[in-house]
């Protein structure tokens, strides 16, 4: 790890000032992805700006049909708190199966989505639930937020403050985990709200994406059978030692059908 300057700003404005003044500043939230990258010198910032002392960034509240989760909320809280379990149970389950307890007690929602790992679990949830990412300056639709591998629509210095999750009628996430890292080889999040269906896929491409053909079929009939015949093209899918593009294409179908079956069996809690 290289030397760097460490800052603990108390306000969003102060954080932004420090970042813009730094030669190569980086925000740090939970640090569960950033710290390993620092150790391996894949990221070599001049300044590390820790967001942990800024008030109001953590916490979960419900506003009508929306769940608002603060950017600095730890995975362990999203996984464990009834306010999430009672409104979007599969979001709680998804987060509860990420990494391990020590990581879940440090890692944050904002840090995770800002990192935008193409195989991580939060992005398909945000995409399928049509979440809104709230920053210190604006609101960004999930569909505009994830733009590529480890790349987002955030501007320099912009800080995520919360994510608004509209509560769906049905939702489920099914993931096929890599035997080594437990990241998704393929993960599919299916959500239905007011008749509209979103199917979001992680792990299979350089960026999380929605599978429109399945969405249209599921809007006609929200059953696994409705998408049985829909085959994803292997073209452009990720190839690595854990999965060929053809395997990933196949798994998208299997995971999507399982997610639909699971979501259909779990209507929105009263």
């Amino acid at each position: 790890m290289d030397d760097f300057n460490y800052h603990e700003p108390r306000t969003l404005a102060e954080a932004a000032v420090v970042l813009h003044a730094a030669r190569n500043g980086v925000y740090i939230a939970g640090g569960m992805s950033l710290i390993p990258a620092l150790k391996h010198r894949r990221v070599r910032p001049s300044d590390l700006i820790d967001l942990r002392l800024i008030d109001g960034l953590a916490g979960i509240r419900r506003e009508a049909d929306t769940l608002v989760i603060g950017a600095m909320t730890k995975h362990a809280d999203v996984a464990g708190l009834d306010i999430v379990r009672n409104s979007i149970p599969d979001l709680a389950r998804l987060v509860g199966e990420m990494a391990d307890p020590s990581v879940r007690n440090r890692a944050t929602l904002g840090g995770s989505i800002a990192h935008a790992d193409p195989a991580s679990d939060y992005p398909p949830a945000l995409l399928a639930l049509e979440a809104i990412i709230v920053t210190d300056t604006r609101r960004i639709a999930a569909a505009e937020f994830f733009t590529g591998p480890f790349t987002t629509g955030l501007r320099k210095g912009e800080i995520i403050t919360a994510v608004n999750f509209p509560i769906p009628d049905n939702a489920a996430y099914v993931k096929f985990a890599n035997v080594a890292s437990r990241y998704a080889i393929v993960g599919v999040f299916v959500a239905r709200r007011a008749g509209k269906v979103c199917v979001a896929v992680t792990g299979a491409k350089p960026c999380v994406f929605r599978f429109g053909e399945m969405e249209r079929a599921l809007e006609n009939s929200f059953t696994p059978d409705a998408i049985k015949a829909i085959v994803m093209s292997a073209q452009g899918l990720t190839a690595d030692i854990h999965g060929t593009p053809e395997y990933r294409a196949h798994l998208i179908g299997v995971m999507a059908q399982r997610a639909v079956a699971s979501a259909a069996a779990k209507p929105r809690p009263a």
């Binding site: 890599n178 035997v179 080594a180 890292s181 990241y183 690595d240 030692i241 854990h242």
Partner: peptide
């Protein structure tokens, strides 16, 4: 080696 971390090497 493509398997140089526990992200790729399954234990």
């Amino acid at each position: 080696p493509l398997t140089e971390s526990f992200e790729e090497y399954g234990m």
